[in-house]
Design a protein around this nucleic acid. Structure first.
Lengths: 225, 225
DNA sequence: GCAGCTTAGTGTATTTAGTACACTAAAAGC
DNA sequence: GCTTTTAGTGTACTAAATACACTAAGCTGC
């Protein structure tokens, strides 16, 4: 019987990571949730995440859990906050290091191998009851995202490889929570000097087609303003 | 023999808190360090901090360690970042949740009960070698502090209960790392509308005395701009 | 007691950044 | 070819940030 083979002189908490994945879909800011397969909160919705391996870096653990539970890979994670209220998990003391990330609209294939019933994108404004203190984690992540909208280029992480300026403006409006002036918006984006005209256009209905832009350095977003 | 009485089915890391306490002294931004009494890094300098109790809140643990190791109480802590590189502690896996705080110039009595050889204030620009990854923690804290100077009233936390505007300006200049225009600075501070004239003055040499100001709500600093 | 030194305290003009706002361009549908 | 729909563009105004220089008050030393 190897059930309790790890022994310590002092009590140790468990450490986990939880990941808030945002995307924009159907004109809404959405969060990726998974259905819990076990107690506690069995069959309830929760953030993807899990325990950190004893020799595993925190961010690495978050990336691994994300891959295992959702199939998502290759995202840029940013540490959000560490939640450690003693009663936040009924099983044992669990301290969780929360991360968040933004994935582009076109990359949110919850692809092959993922059980459709076990995963879902939920509108931030209409989340179901969440397990543990995950509601708090999502709130904090949303707050951080909203704040960063004003002084960084974080929102560009939502964009697919080619996009129109109107699409980008919609993304800003959805996060910001209100309409933006088209000319002022374009002036601001232009000042960032971080995207270029592909020369291509998108035809999209019975009206003038829109120019397609692409990020100059897709990885290196986040420049402050 | 109770040496390994805590047993778990899976390996658990240890969790600690470390606290970066800033103050301004001798025209320098200083950090509070303690001398380590035990291995590893015995006799080396380190941040105050220690292990989190199994039923203890993270912030509570930080406050307790701070009290125990430095005698400092009643400060407002803000969570900074969680450091978890697997090799950051040679003994075992230790994940540390770092906090930071600013203490007023006049409150930095490392008072009664503290061993003078075991505690020291160090200029941020001339830190000794630090234990573990504490150098990284201090860097991140300083970076956060510098950033917050521009969009919050965080620096007011450095001020004693009564202070002059020139003293406040010096504090800003020290953190900012360069001179500020006196009139523009005063205009900015006035706009915060968070301090009031006590009516008293400070005589301080062979020149015109300066008015003493006090914070309107000493706790509630941090209003963003 | 006044001349000289030192820091405290004050306002305005200029520049820059942000905001408000309305028309023309291009394609598709009829 | 006319209507509809979204794309794309510039300027005038307002607010915020910056640059900048003198007077006020107390102390010191003669």
């Amino acid at each position: 019987m190897h059930q309790f083979q790890y022994q310590y002189e002092y009590p140790h908490p468990a450490v986990s990571t939880d990941i808030v994945i945002f995307t924009i879909q159907d004109e809404q800011l959405k969060v990726l949730l998974i259905r819990r397969l076990s107690e506690p909160f069995k069959d309830g919705w929760a953030l993807p995440g899990g325990f950190v391996g004893i020799d595993e870096d925190l961010e690495q653990a978050a990336l691994r859990e994300l891959q295992e539970e959702t199939g998502i890979t290759g995202v840029y994670l940013e540490q959000l906050y560490t939640f450690g209220r003693p009663e936040r998990d009924p099983r044992e003391r669990v301290i969780t290091v929360a991360y968040y990330s933004l994935v582009p609209i076109d990359r949110l294939s919850l692809g092959a191998g993922s059980d459709a019933r076990a995963l879902g994108w939920f509108d931030c404004e209409a989340l179901p009851e969440l397990a543990f203190d995950h509601q708090k984690i999502v709130s904090k992540a949303k707050q951080r995202l909203t704040a960063k909208l004003d002084y960084s280029t974080i929102a560009l992480q939502f964009m697919p490889s080619k996009f129109t300026l109107s699409e980008l403006q919609r993304v800003y409006e959805i996060i910001h929570g209100g309409p933006l002036d088209k000319r002022n918006f374009r002036k601001r984006i232009q000042a960032y000097d971080c995207m270029e005209d592909t020369g291509e256009v998108r035809r999209n209905g019975s009206h003038r087609p829109a120019r397609l832009y692409t990020l100059k350095s897709p990885g290196q977003v986040e420049i402050v303003k």
